[in-house]
Design a protein around this nucleic acid. Structure first.
Lengths: 259, 259
DNA sequence: AAGTGGTCTAGACCACTCG
DNA sequence: GAGTGGTCTAGACCACTTG
């Protein structure tokens, strides 16, 4: 039997307990790719929860792509491994630490400047409106990986000029000092050649291949808070992406529609 | 009033009708970013559906990031625009057509070969096992954009050698001839410099910056079906990504946990 | 015919936010 | 205290798959 008991006094919702239990079975390989997980009926009966609760547990795993349901057949473990840190909003610090690297930064400059057209458009500011500009070299295990230039609205973040600390993550500072949490970001990457000046900062030869990134980060409300331009070494960096087929909401009635 | 009537005889589920109606209000700007959408209670009463059904409609929009819920306050329109074709599994053909370009390909070679280590690992084949290799130059509006080399297990796709047509999309062919639909893919991109030989095929100068991609595509079951290595022009290509904060399943009880 | 997931109902209690 | 979303129940009918 793959189902354990529930803690009905816990603050952790029942569906979440069930979900975590199934997750563990999958992670440990007790439930293998292609194998069916217990049906919603089974979960419901054996744990004495309503079917909707069992369903909610299964649905949450389904949404994350760990299992997939086939109408009339059952729900099966997907063989697609869960990549971590893929298409997730992570700071450079988080990302590098996840790879086990010691991270730090060197601040090249931190001051208030007028926004150029790109910055004011991205942050939805008036053209030329003041922004805080933070330019840093990012290092992993003391090796320069990239150069990041962040722009934030001066009006809201003027304090950063005094309080920002080179040893902390910008995201951490925004969370601690302003209670701000990024919800999403749009990132674009281009391939190009590094200039002589940037090459010196990165410790590579002029003309080496690099990534040029831009990123706009948003709050839940959709308000853009941070715009970043960065340059990362092509020899040290790789963009990894999990693409998914908008599995959406179909299975049943769409078929009828087509026929 | 923002809610319209439901078609209770339709094969389209009620929650989906509600969802689409709200979606339209958002898309047309009738519901603006930051504004609350009707509460689950309101939807439930005014459309005479159960609250769970109303909730399902709202939840689906929430999952896609179009709206966000705040406990005790309400559900609000997110100002984050829905990017299309971001982190979605699209073929080159789909992707380019979405940008309004006329697409075609030139086949450089199509034959059965032994898999090298990279290919056999990606497709989970025995080392050296035969694969179908399809090498194409991809053009948008007659401009060469990239060179793609696809590898598929020979055992299953030997027929492609005879039947594949330069004018169709590979994904389309897999769908039509084999009933195969990709469910997810892992893609990695590196920045590098193009070789003289590839430069000729792409119509650019040797040493120009390019993207090197690898991609493994999977079925729902997790079985890898296609491995692709490709080279795309750095001056014509941009990688666009929507990163999201794993909004997940929290809001309520996690807070208690922390306290 | 039996079992599965997809949808739906009509209630319920809770924690939370706001005025 | 009124309104909100988060969780949960105990049923129901349906379309679909498989034996």
């Amino acid at each position: 039997m793959v189902l354990s008991e529930l803690d009905r006094g816990s603050v952790v919702p029942l569906y979440y307990q069930i979900r975590q239990h199934l997750l563990e079975q999958i992670r440990t390989g007790l439930l293998k790719p292609g194998q069916p997980i217990p049906s919603e009926q089974e979960i419901s009966e054996q744990l004495s929860v309503s079917r909707m609760t069992a369903r909610q547990a299964v649905k949450s795993l389904c949404d994350e792509g760990l299992v997939y349901s086939e109408r009339g057949k059952g729900t099966f473990v997907s063989g697609i491994k869960q990549e971590k840190n893929v298409s997730q909003l992570l700071s450079f610090t988080q990302e590098m630490k996840a790879h086990g690297a010691r991270v730090h930064s060197r601040i090249l400059s931190l001051k208030a400047v007028s926004s150029d057209a790109g910055v004011s458009a991205a942050l939805r500011l008036r053209p030329g409106e003041k922004v805080v500009r933070l330019k840093r070299v990012r290092l992993a295990d003391s090796v320069p990986m990239g150069i990041e230039t962040s722009y934030l609205p001066f009006e809201r973040f003027a304090n950063l000029l005094k309080t920002f600390n080179a040893d902390t993550s910008l995201y951490q500072t925004l969370a601690d000092q302003y209670g701000i949490h990024m919800h999403a970001a749009d990132e674009a990457a281009e391939a190009g050649l590094v200039t002589a000046q940037d090459a010196r900062l990165l410790g590579i030869r002029a003309g080496s291949p690099v990534f040029f990134f831009t990123r706009v980060s948003y709050l839940k409300s959709g308000r853009p808070i941070e715009f970043v331009r960065s340059i990362y070494r092509g020899d040290r960096f790789k963009i990894v992406n999990r693409l998914t087929h908008q599995s959406n909401l179909d299975s049943g009635w769409r078929r009828k529609y087509a026929q």
